[in-house]
């Protein structure tokens, strides 16, 4: 489960909410906060905050400014600032992020490239 702060994220602040009975296929790009509790296949991109819930199934590349993720994610994740990975998360893909927090129980199969390493590679 996400921490209390995450659970208190208000639906009213989200531009897009994808409920558990919804499956989105294609390139889903938004400008505001996005909450996903359903399925997405393709790509997800937002300039704001992204929340991927514990029951979500994501088969997509993911890009956002900040994110908190749970559920099953198959695809690369690129976060500009901060990423929190919840204990239910099962990620298969590379992660590129400036700063990160990983909860106990999370499964990650892929490379994690942090901001400093990214700069060094350049």
């Amino acid at each position: 489960m996400f921490n209390k702060e995450t659970e208190n994220i208000n639906i009213k602040e989200a531009e897009t909410v994808i409920g558990p009975s919804i499956k989105v296929k294609g390139n889903f790009h938004g400008q505001g906060n996005i909450i996903i509790e359903g399925q997405v296949e393709g790509s997800i991109k937002t300039n704001a905050f992204l929340l991927i819930g514990n029951k979500s199934i994501i088969t997509a590349s993911v890009e956002a400014k900040n994110a908190k993720v749970g559920g099953i994610i198959t695809g690369n994740i690129k976060i500009d600032e901060y990423l929190e990975i919840g204990p239910s998360a099962n990620i298969k893909g590379d992660i590129e992020v400036k700063s990160i927090s990983i909860n106990k129980g999370a499964i990650i199969n892929g490379r994690i490239v942090m901001g400093a390493e990214k700069s060094a590679e350049k």
Binding site: S21, I22, K23, V24, K25, G26, N27, F28, H29, G42
Partner: peptide, 8 residues
């Protein structure tokens, strides 16, 4: 750009 399917 994307489609939406609803299961319920």
């Amino acid at each position: 750009t994307y489609t939406i399917e609803i299961s319920e």
